[in-house]
Nucleic acid binder design. Structure first.
Lengths: 206, 206
DNA sequence: ATGAACATACCAACTAGTCGGTATGAGTCA
DNA sequence: TGACTCATACCGACTAGTTGGTATGTTCAT
């Protein structure tokens, strides 16, 4: 049920959850915080969500949908060559890294670190978000691997996951350091790695 | 003032903090949890630490010291060649990734994500831990860069930080997925990246 | 009128932090 | 030696405020 005009309390709460959890973390964000940010009352909160944890699961799914739409319509798909698409994806990710960490970091990565031990539902929703996004890269990586006859001891799946690991780690360094510059540098290393992987014209072993 | 014989309440609390925060996160770990785990009372807690946040800062410093000692005495330093030392460091890190995420993940990386916005003291302590550890790699990376006359558009500092980003991101994926295998794969990509960086204009390494 | 979408008042449990008190040992001096 | 002081380390009942969650409405479109 997509929102036609004015956002429902449910959608406002999901948007508030994304904003506040990215900025403060999950445990530090209270139900009252979320209601205040969304401009709804506690009654509305518990009308739409069984518990705070249930909102977290819904927020992770909402995050998957909104970021999925963002990346699906992003221009990096336009390149004819699959390797170019992968490299353009990394450039696109690097370009998104701007401003405060709360504005460019990943909700799923932030939330799973706090909640993986306490709630398997939240863990699974975050896993689906991260791994699902990685899966959207896999076809291009595999196509490039075949096209350029690269034969390393790595798989498209594992490289796709590696891109996400580098970005998640970059977000942590950015939070620790207080700015986005370091995270962009890490994206630069990631791009260089992919370029180097595809520079070998013949199959090479470890 | 290092304790010679039996651990003081202060040290027991620091060890408890490392254990519980790695397993549950910072906000989800209560002062009572910490006291129970350490086997001390609340009076002892607030005798040694001004606040929960002050313990977090002390725990980050404690983490820097203990991990610093672990890595300082690790065998990867024994290699004569600087590049070998860097590659052996990555192998060493990969070998540490075993069991549950709480056993191999990084306290500083976990804590900074929750606390960077709320407490600049905690943020700075975690930054010092992560960036300080990265700095211990810089000399070897730079020595290898000079020895093998590598002239890419990257610095030893930035590559050292990249290793930490990959590992931090690997921990997140491991938490999301529920096991260490993925994290070890990410370490494999990191090693391959370093090998590829140093393969240009120089004979191959194993 | 009926059910979905809210609002308001409320609560029991929990939270970080406090505070008066005790235990112990080191130093001092007659 | 032993009485006296002092400081540090520790104890645990207590509190003021916060937390997620509930009970009981009201509003409004169908």
């Amino acid at each position: 049920m997509p929102s036609p005009e004015k956002p429902s309390a449910r959608e406002k709460l999901l948007a508030a959850a994304v904003k506040l959890v990215r900025a403060q973390g999950y445990a530090a964000t209270t139900v009252d915080d979320l209601c205040r940010e969304a401009g709804v009352t506690k009654g509305a909160f518990f009308h739409h969500f069984e518990s705070k944890d249930a909102l977290a699961v819904a927020a992770a799914d909402y995050w998957s949908e909104t970021t999925g739409a963002l990346f699906a319509s992003a221009p990096y798909h336009d390149h004819a060559d699959p390797l170019e698409r992968v490299l353009a994806y990394i450039d696109f990710r690097a370009a998104l890294i701007e401003g405060a960490p709360a504005e460019f970091s990943c909700l799923a990565g932030t939330m799973v670190q706090e909640a993986y031990a306490a709630s398997d539902d939240i863990r699974a929703a975050c896993e689906a978000s991260i791994f699902g996004h990685a899966a959207t890269l896999e076809a291009d990586i595999e196509a490039a691997r075949v096209k350029y006859k690269i034969d390393g001891d790595w798989t498209a799946c594992s490289l796709a996951l590696h891109t996400q690991a580098v970005l998640q780690g970059a977000f942590i360094l950015a939070k620790a350091h207080g700015g986005p510059e370091i995270a962009r540098e890490m994206a630069g290393h990631l791009k260089r790695y992919v370029q180097l992987l595809f520079r070998q014209s013949k199959g090479e072993r470890k």
